[in-house]
Design a protein around this nucleic acid. Sequence first.
DNA 1: ACATATATGTCAATAAGACTGACTTATATC
DNA 2: GATATAAGTCAGTCTTATTGACATATATGT
Lengths: 164, 164
Amino acid sequence: MIAKCNPSDALSLNENELENLRQSIELLFLAYRDFTAEPDEILSRYGFGRAHHRVIYFVGRNPGMTVSKLLDILQITKQSLARVLRQLVEEGFIEKRLDHKDGRRRLLYLLKKGSEIEILLTRLQAKRIRAAFELAGENVESAFKNVLRGIINEKDRGRVINNL
Amino acid sequence: MIAKCNPSDALSLNENELENLRQSIELLFLAYRDFTAEPDEILSRYGFGRAHHRVIYFVGRNPGMTVSKLLDILQITKQSLARVLRQLVEEGFIEKRLDHKDGRRRLLYLLKKGSEIEILLTRLQAKRIRAAFELAGENVESAFKNVLRGIINEKDRGRVINNL
DNA sequence: ACATATATGTCAATAAGACTGACTTATATC
DNA sequence: GATATAAGTCAGTCTTATTGACATATATGT
């Protein structure tokens, strides 16, 4: 048996397969585009951008998260995060507390303003996804999630469930 | 009957529902992050970025596409596209031909170099998605696609199928 | 034929979000 | 006491996007 005969071979991809997978590529692009456009519009009223949203979201999801954990999730540089985080702290959306177990660490928490905007934006996105589940029919949620999980690099799969 | 009683009400969202939908929100963020990271790395070797990829992809998918149709899909400004497109034309990745049916229009086509990089990147992304489908199990493809379709703004649904 | 609309292109200024590289400070750990 | 880790900061650069103002060519409607 030759490698090319295996339809699951990571190296082979026939034209029909490719054509089919292109649809998913495009849908993913378009879905992400619209998924982020709505929050972006609201964030701009606060003088914030998508980067601020991601920070607010993950801190809200994971109260007491450290700076380096956040860097690990966002996969941006410390300097990129610094600008955004400084703004959020200065404007009272996020609080930095010292970790008494390890004095080098700063733990991140949402303050009232941060929590409010987090909930507002998350609810918007959640509703969009819920509506999509309803349109797509019965029992699509786990299929959708499992495919997304498979797209994520192996080392980061399960982060959503485990949170950290 | 009160609106709150309807679980599908666009305005209501209980804590359990929200918690569940958060997982999809995160998965979508992480999946898109990794889905684009791989092509980004390759593009940077050519001196290109994600914006160039999108142009190359959609022109390749839709030979003879007009500039304004491309603007419509990418949802960026003419000036933003101009820089990227000019680079791609000057460096011989994309060709602009006059539309003889409507002399105002310029039709876009991939040249050899453009086609090569398009195929390279599309195959990479297609394989990632195919691997995810295999991990997720049987018959997940249509569920995945249908959910993504539902996330896309109504006016743009079907663009993937219809192409234009 | 003329006015208006459409498709494209271009100049200039600005901003957000990312990067690299170099360095500092504080705290833990070996 | 040396080394590693967590965080912060300064400076410079790049890509991708924005707004606003115009210019040009071609089509279309009256």
